[in-house]
Design a protein around this nucleic acid. Structure first.
Lengths: 333, 333
DNA sequence: ATGAAAGCGCTAACAG
DNA sequence: CTGTTAGCGCTTTCAT
């Protein structure tokens, strides 16, 4: 013990301590070949005793696997802060299940894509908030490692995609409201910029909403909405001014939702409201609220599952659209 | 061109193409020794032509630097979603300025700390939302790489810390309200769980608030507050029930803020309100609002600056508490 | 079931 | 100012 200098423990130290070869240690770690029980036991003991940790870089160099996936997140603060957090949580948790870490990239960091698609930095990539005609898509499609997109670009170019089926959600909302007898319904949706960017989900929701409204023969009115208290109130006022007969409403704007509800209450109108949001956001409102669930965490987990599947075997790219579900509020007690 | 197989281009390929040695290529990349202009030019051209990207793992192995920092984030959805996002944005942006990437760790992932403090995975660690008596602090303090904490543990154990000076913020709020003539003031603060955990910032804010109130001779009432619409309303009601004479209020709860304001308006009382929150959150409210700014992004950037400084030279650990500033709303036009 | 040894791609002495 | 070369710590053939 005297004079022992603290040095990083390597696989060779472990091998020496366990009186086996380095390759044996490597194999008990990876499980890639059978090891006799006693040998395994000795190795494991040595590892524990020495507190051995494989060196990530060395591993990456030798195996060309980094055990890291990149996650590109829209870090600009916007409508969906809450949704984004849930989503990220899902990704990180699931990645850990596959012994992978998560490297955080921001949406606007274009050079991040280059760095990451160069190969040596991560094994795979998950990209949030894809727009209909997203310039990042071709870049990612040309990369070596598997990627999955959250959202649905116009042309996925052979990439995997996951998302809530927003189009079906739009239809579902209209069906629900029409069935309740409403003849004029409204949509209070994403902020104008998001609409203008043709962010995939906003477009798809709108399409479903329109299609079904036509089918059901109900009149609709669509209002973009800033994700602020004032924005929510203003959107309500605009909507009611232009379409005073509105009696049913779909709200897809987490940030504005409480204020939309508050403003509606003030006006004395009590239209039938359906929100499109995570369950806990719906539950947090002051009034019981029908909502179509936005399963952000589940989408995150699924994204990782898909990307891992592609990493393992030669599964083809696929698009998964999760079916929306409308949840009625629990009857007031 | 015929039969050319796509292989990763290495530093040797670049060296060959530029007719120099590998070390020269390495040195033009790192700038760690002088290179003649023509040589540098040839190398840079070769790099561009071949689309060369250094292999991160190889680099890490040879240099024992990963160019990655870990960021431990409270991913549970809570009061501060907005604040967290800003903070993370600051960290990622500043890290890029130092050519570093960010590895995302979640607060509850204890094994993540082990993995990361083992050394080979990241160069440094930034940890958010530190509690007064945080079990992670000793672990991190014992690690090899530099770390900085957001928050202020009871015993920093030689670690660097950054945060808003919440204690000063508490005092500032009281001074401001007392100067405006209020004799009874209230604090609507963090959710009960956060208070109970003794999350560093909540404790410090409270301490400053109490101290200054005593000094100024004003009566105070403190209410924890759930970060939901209902929670905000309930907190207002509780506060006014117990201390009906309250005419000044400090609100430190981003999620509940709009609903606190709404409820106050409903009750017809118009107490003087100061919010503790990021500037844009204050600006997003329906009414002009005095606020003490929570410079989340700046704190994030500072954290990275500090950790990088420690990575470079042998600077000692330090604690930086950013002075709070109270911003008056712009007079209504 | 286990070992020996050849790299993986890069950095940083050491030598001019 | 530039080149040679010995590792960094691990995985993975190829032997046995």
């Amino acid at each position: 013990m005297i004079g022992r200098v603290k040095r990083t423990v390597t696989i060779d130290d472990v091998a020496r301590e366990a009186k086996v070869s380095t390759s044996t240690v490597s194999y008990v770690l990876s499980g890639k070949r059978p090891i006799s029980a006693p040998t395994r036991k000795r190795v494991e003991q040595a590892i524990a005793e020495l507190g051995y940790r494989p060196h990530a870089g060395a591993r990456a160099l030798a195996s060309s696997r980094t055990n890291t996936i990149a996650l590109m997140v829209p870090l600009r603060v916007g409508v969906n802060v809450h949704v984004i957090m849930e989503f990220v949580g899902g990704v990180v948790a699931r990645a850990r299940d596959f012994s992978h870490d998560v490297l955080l990239l921001t949406q606007d960091d274009v050079s991040g894509l280059d760095r990451v698609t160069s190969g040596s930095i991560v094994d795979a990539l998950v990209m949030m908030d894809v727009e209909a005609d997203d310039p990042r898509v071709p870049v990612v499609a040309a990369a070596d490692q598997p990627s999955v997109l959250i959202g649905l670009p116009a042309d996925p170019e052979g990439l995997s995609c996951v998302d809530l089926d927003f189009e079906a959600a739009g239809r579902l909302a209209v069906r629900h409201l029409a069935a309740a007898g409403h003849q004029e319904i409204g949509l209070i949706g994403a902020p104008p910029e998001v609409m203008a960017r043709h962010t995939s989900y906003a477009d798809r929701l709108l399409r479903g909403f329109r299609t079904q409204a036509e089918l059901a023969g109900v009149a609709i009115r669509v209002e973009p909405c800033e994700a602020s208290p004032a924005g929510g109130r203003a959107a309500v006022d605009r909507l009611l001014a232009k379409a005073p007969g509105t009696t049913g409403l779909l709200v897809h704007n987490e940030g504005a939702l409480p204020h939309v509800l508050a403003r509606l209450a003030e006006t004395g109108r009590q239209p039938d409201v359906v929100a499109l949001c995570p369950a806990d956001v719906a539950a947090a409102q002051t009034v019981p609220l029908a909502h179509i669930e936005l399963p952000a965490e589940a989408i995150g987990r699924t994204a990782v599952d898909m990307v891992m599947a592609r990493l393992e075997g030669e599964v083809p790219a696929e698009t998964r659209l999760l079916a929306p579900a409308l949840i009625q509020p629990r009857p007031a007690s």
